[in-house]
Design a protein around this nucleic acid. Structure first.
Lengths: 145, 145
DNA sequence: TTATTTTAGTTGACAAAGTCAACTAAAATT
DNA sequence: AATTTTAGTTGACTTTGTCAACTAAAATAA
C-alpha cells in the first residue's frame, strides 16, 4: 500500500467518522444548545480559571462569536465572569449552579449517545475500539496540524 | 475499565478527532466551496446515476438546501441534470468537464492536507494508523446509529 | 378506473451559525 | 511618554441550514 493509497484510506475514514459524529451530534442538537455551546460549557467546566481567550485558542472560535455566546450564558444566569486581579482585561469564567445543571444535562445526553452506540457491541469489541482510538490519538496527537 | 470509563474515552477521542478534522477542513474551506459542497461533488463523482434524493439520504442534508446548491452548481456550469427516462420526478446528476475540474482541485487539496498530516510520521506509524482506522470502521460500521 | 398517498424536487421565509472589521480599555514593549 | 499588543465588545454582514408550503409525477388503494 503506497502513500497515495494510505491517504485515500485516511480520507475514507474521515468521511466515515465525520458522518458518524454528525449523526450523533444531530440527535444531541435537539437540546437548546448548539455543539459549539456544549463545547464551551465543557471547556469552562474542565479548565480551571479559564478565560475567553483560552477558549478561543482551544476551539478556534471567532472572538466576537464567543463574546456573544458568553453574554447570552450570562444573561441566562449560567455563567459567572470574575475579573482577574492582576490583569483588568481578563475575566475568568465559571458556571453558576444553574450553568452546571445545564452542563450536566448535556454531558449525560452525550454519554447516553455513546452508550447507545456501544451497547450493541460485545465487551471485547468495545475494549478493542477504545484501544484503537487511543493508538490513533497517540500517533497523531503530539504535534500540530 | 468499566463502561462509564470507556464512554469517557470514546468521547475524548471524538473531541480530539472533531478538532483535528475541523482544523483540516478549515484550511480547505478557503476554497470557494463549502464542506457540504465538497461532499456533494464527491458523491456525484463516485455515485453512478445518482439523484438528489440519493445525496439527501447519504449526507443527511435538507432537500431544500441541496436543491439550491445543485441549482447553483448548474448555473456555474458545473453540474448536468439528466431526467430519468422511467421516472420524470428524478434527475440523474453528473459533473460537467468544468465541474470535474473543480472536484479535482478540491480532491487534490484534501489529499495534500492528509499528506501533510502524515508526512511527519514514519512509514510504520502510518501503516499502524491506517490499520487502527480500518479496525474502528469494522467495529462501528455495520449497523446504524 | 378513479381517489389517495407517497416520492422527488423547488421555492419562500426565516433562524442559526459564523465572519470581519472597527472599536475601547488595559497591559506590555520600545 | 509613545507605540504596539492583547482581551474583549459591538455592529454589520454572509453563509449555512431549517421548515413548511407547494407542484408534478408515481405508486398504491379503493
Amino acid at each position: 500500500m503506497d502513500r497515495k493509497e494510505q491517504i485515500q484510506k485516511i480520507r475514507a475514514f474521515n468521511r466515515f467518522y465525520t458522518d458518524l459524529i454528525g449523526l450523533l451530534d444531530n440527535q444531541l442538537l435537539h437540546s437548546d444548545y448548539s455543539l459549539a455551546e456544549a463545547r464551551i460549557f465543557y471547556e469552562i467546566v474542565m479548565g480551571k480559571s479559564i478565560s475567553a481567550s483560552d477558549i478561543i485558542a482551544k476551539l478556534n472560535i471567532d472572538k466576537g462569536y464567543l463574546s456573544r455566546i458568553l453574554k447570552k450564558f450570562e444573561k441566562q444566569g449560567l455563567l459567572c465572569k470574575e475579573p482577574s486581579k492582576s490583569d483588568a482585561r481578563i475575566a475568568y469564567l465559571s458556571l453558576t449552579a444553574a450553568g452546571l445543571q445545564v452542563f450536566k444535562g448535556l454531558d449525560r445526553a452525550s454519554d447516553e449517545q455513546i452508550r447507545h452506540l456501544v451497547d450493541r457491541l460485545d465487551e471485547q469489541k468495545v475494549i478493542e475500539l477504545v484501544g484503537h482510538m487511543k493508538s490513533i490519538f497517540t500517533i497523531l496527537s503530539p504535534s500540530e496540524v
